[in-house]
Amino acid sequence: MTERIVLHVDGKSHAIAVDDPEMPLLYALRDHLGLANPHFGCGLGQCGACTVHLDGVAVRSCSTPVSAARHARITTLAGLGTPEHPHPLQTAFAEEQVPQCGYCINGWIMTAAALLKETPHPSEAEIKEGLSGLKCRCGTHLAILRAIKRVAQQA
């Protein structure tokens, strides 16, 4: 049975028709709304490539049912900041030249953004703990940590 669901994404509201309310939010964003972000990495909540914010909390959109997001404020990486008004993490990730293939980058920036909101000046151990479990296959770990520490050390 088709159900109408309204999603609030990056400051805009969209009504979509879904057959399966258990459909992960990821497919609503990518397929119904045509966004190029977030990315499908595993569909199992193991990697973070699909991370978005629901009311400021980092969640894995591949394993969050679309029906659970209907009243939330959804923020994607594109909505976190723009080249004109970048989030400090986006500036830092660009300056540190972090991404190689870059497919994982949602996970790191969106998770770190949520972390920094809770803990603006985390220690290196807190950063590592907060990001543990996210995956980067190209091995840009050192650059990721440099970029986040750069923001964490800002006043």
């Binding site: 190029a36 080249p83 660009a94 030249q97």
Partner: peptide, 20 residues
């Protein structure tokens, strides 16, 4: 500097997964 970095961190990079 690299040329693909800004597009990636601002979610404007096109991957093969995004071709429609």
């Amino acid at each position: 500097p690299r040329r693909d970095v800004a597009a990636k961190v601002f979610a404007r990079a096109e991957y093969v997964t995004d071709v429609k």
